[in-house]
């Protein structure tokens, strides 16, 4: 649950300095995001996949879990919008 610490520190800092923080945070956020994705890619690239079938199985599971989630979110959440 370490993720709460930077989030809460950020929210509190942002709230305290909301009058002074006038500049747009979009660019630093984009740059950090690209670095994060790069380093996540490095970690994913380190995973050795020896059997092609394991890779295909994983892709099919990922695809259908995402598809199922999207369909049910539209089905259940669509009415509440």
């Amino acid at each position: 649950m370490n993720i709460f610490i930077p989030l809460i520190v950020g929210v509190v800092t942002g709230y305290i300095f909301r009058e002074k923080l006038k500049y747009n945070l979009d660019k630093p956020m984009s740059a950090t995001l690209l670095f994060l994705i790069f380093f996540m890619g490095v970690e994913a690239g380190r995973v050795e996949i020896k059997a092609m079938s394991l890779f295909v199985t994983s892709i099919i599971f990922a695809f259908f879990t995402i598809l199922g989630s999207l369909l049910f979110s539209l089905l259940l959440g669509g009415k509440l919008r």
Binding site: P6, G10, V11, V12, G14, R18, L21, M29, T32
Partner: peptide, 10 residues
């Protein structure tokens, strides 16, 4: 996450 927190806070 800190930057996102800043956005929410401000």
């Amino acid at each position: 996450i800190f930057i996102i927190g800043l956005e929410i806070g401000k």
